[in-house]
Design a protein around this nucleic acid. Structure first.
Length: 272
DNA sequence: CCTTAGACCTGGAGGC
DNA sequence: TGCCTCCAGGTCTAAG
């Protein structure tokens, strides 16, 4: 599920449900879920603050910073009774009011860490490759130009580099390139400061709109629980191959760029 | 130093 | 139906 906006939606939902909840027990069924520290240290802790940096979730408890990344398919559910089907549930956090916070992840890519509380989140090992969030005012056109204009990479790869702007994933990278009228394969070295200013503006506009609409749900997961967004109805190019471009009517194509599915309109996205 | 395949996992979709 | 290959919203690594 998770690019920045989807993580934001999950964080907001969990905050509404779990603000100040007390964790009374922790069960971990898939040991590799834990990256640094131990989830059992959270026993006896209340979750005080919910936030996000890029695609990473940050739960601050009384004494710890609990960091989670859902990667491709991780999901959090809150149940009123212990789940019967524990397939793909890799951790259960028992809460003092009888509810259960469950972490579900079909592909087991998600990871969690527990660190003693710190002032400087960027200093945490799990966040070492995470730069400014897409909502961070440090992210400006000049900043982006500075970071990428020496790079031989293509535009889309730079957008997916979490050290430059954190929170953009494959779907929004495709949408951002389309909205900017730039071919995702454009070389970073050929982009102007003006291009970079446009890219930053468009990034904020698209990701904020996606957040407001509850994010993007591409795969339809087992219905009933989890978060389903409405932004997929606003996708201009992602998963739209074969359909006419909403801007010029030319057929949208799917290509592979660096092994990631990439959707574009060759007619109105200029390759620089 | 920078850039790019490969690895990590599972299940659904589509071809035969 | 069954088997096979490819693909999926991410990120670290090893190797060039």
């Amino acid at each position: 599920m998770p690019e920045g906006p989807e993580v934001q939606v999950v964080i907001r939902t969990l905050q509404e449900k779990l603000q100040d909840a007390l964790i009374t027990d922790v069960e971990v069924f898939y040991p590799k879920l834990e990256e640094d520290g131990h989830l059992t240290d959270l026993i006896g802790q209340r979750i005080r603050k919910f936030s996000r940096l890029g695609k990473y979730m940050i739960f601050e408890t009384d004494d710890y910073d609990w960091i989670a990344h859902m990667r491709m398919e991780g999901k959090f559910y809150v149940f009123f009774s212990a789940p019967e089907d524990r397939r793909h549930i890799h951790a259960i956090f028992h809460l003092d009011d009888g509810r259960y916070l469950c972490y579900h992840d079909t592909r087991k890519f998600g990871r969690m860490s527990v660190y003693p509380k710190t002032e400087d989140l960027h200093s945490l090992p799990m966040l070492k490759n995470v730069g400014y969030d897409y909502t961070d005012p440090h992210v400006t056109g000049d900043y982006l130009y500075q970071e990428i204009h020496h790079s031989r990479r293509c535009l889309k790869m730079a957008l997916l580099d979490q050290r430059i702007i954190a929170g953009i994933g494959n779907i929004y990278a495709n949408e951002i390139c389309f909205a900017c009228g730039l071919d995702p394969r454009s070389r970073c070295t050929r982009l102007s400061k003006k291009d970079c200013a446009l890219i930053v503006d468009v990034t904020r506009r698209i990701l904020n709109e996606a957040d407001a609409l509850g994010g993007t749900t591409v795969h339809s997961f087992a219905s009933g629980f989890g978060v389903t967004g409405r932004f997929q109805q606003h996708l201009q190019v992602h998963m739209q191959d074969g359909k006419p471009c909403p801007r010029c009517g030319h057929t949208i194509e799917k290509i592979m760029v660096q092994n990631r599915g990439t959707y574009l309109c060759r007619n109105c996205q200029k390759r620089k």
